[in-house]
Amino acid sequence: MSQEKFSLEAFENKYVARLKDRSLDWNVLKFQEEINPAYRRAQMRYIGRGATANNDANVIAAEHFTLSTMVLPAGCEGPLHLHDDVEEVFFVIKGSVTALIQEEGENEIHEIVLNERDCISSPPGVYRGIRNDGDEEALMLVMLGAVKPNLPTYPRGSALEELRIQRAKEREAIIKGN
């Protein structure tokens, strides 16, 4: 059996994602911003499509996890959400953010300030969010521990959870042909 000769060009095309080939996606989480303008943020995907499953062909195919950067403008936040199947990591590259942590079924939201080069890992089953209380945008790495994580849920009774439930019913009706 013959082995194919290693091609650096093919390897680079498959496994290298360059900043010059990426753009900030301000629309991937636009549905959240429509609920609350403070939820405005942008994602730039590098490995995999993340939990949003955005149709971005310009990424390295994920084999075990997803990796993206996120821009969080001053005064904005990523709302509390829960991944039931994966841990999620936030690594602050620039600025500072406040991590929001809430145990499922509990009312108290815990806050943890993260500065540059600080990191937090949220296990499955814990609500997590982020907020930028600073005057400048924050830049973070975001990593999810699966190739295609389940869609997140939001706290019961929240406008985002109501929208998620409505969209799930609409998708189900389309699939069933109704």
Rank of each mutant, 00 (worst) to 15 (best):
F6D: 08
G78W: 02
V142N: 06
A99Q: 01
F91K: 03
M44Q: 11
A138F: 01
D56Q: 08
K20H: 07
S158R: 06
I174S: 05
T69D: 00
L8I: 15
Q43A: 14
A168Y: 07
R22N: 10
Q3M: 13
G157M: 06
R171S: 11
M143K: 04
Q32S: 08
K148F: 06
R49C: 05
E172H: 11
P155M: 05
Y154Q: 11
E87M: 09
V92C: 02
L100M: 11
Q3C: 06
P149W: 07
P149S: 08
A99L: 03
K148R: 15
E111M: 08
L8H: 10
E111R: 11
L19Q: 12
I47T: 08
N107I: 03
S122E: 01
V147Q: 12
D133V: 06
Q43K: 08
R171Y: 06
L80S: 09
T98S: 01
K176D: 13
E104V: 15
E9Q: 13
I174Y: 04
P37S: 03
L72A: 06
H83N: 08
I101M: 12
M140L: 15
K20Q: 13
D118M: 05
Q43C: 10
N150R: 12
V113F: 02
I93G: 00
L19S: 10
R18K: 14
V86H: 03
R167T: 14
A74G: 09
V126T: 15
V147G: 10
E104A: 12
R167C: 08
P73W: 02
P79K: 03
E137I: 00
L160H: 01
A62F: 07
N55D: 14
E161C: 03
V126N: 04
E9V: 15
N58W: 06
E104D: 10
S7Y: 02
C119A: 11
L29M: 14
L114M: 14
G129H: 04
A57V: 06
K14L: 14
T52M: 12
F91L: 10
L160A: 13
I112V: 15
P123T: 04
Y127N: 07
V86Y: 05
V142A: 11
L82V: 12
V97D: 00
N107C: 02
L139F: 04
M140T: 07
G129M: 05
T66K: 02
V97A: 00
L8G: 00
L82W: 01
I93L: 14
D133T: 14
R156K: 15
V59T: 15
L160M: 13
M1S: 13
Q32C: 10
D84K: 12
G105S: 08
G177K: 09
I165R: 15
N115A: 08
P152Y: 08
E4N: 14
E77N: 04
A38W: 01
R49P: 00
S122T: 15
Q102G: 02
V92M: 01
E162A: 11
F90H: 06
M70T: 13
K14I: 07
V16W: 02
R45V: 01
V97E: 00
I120T: 10
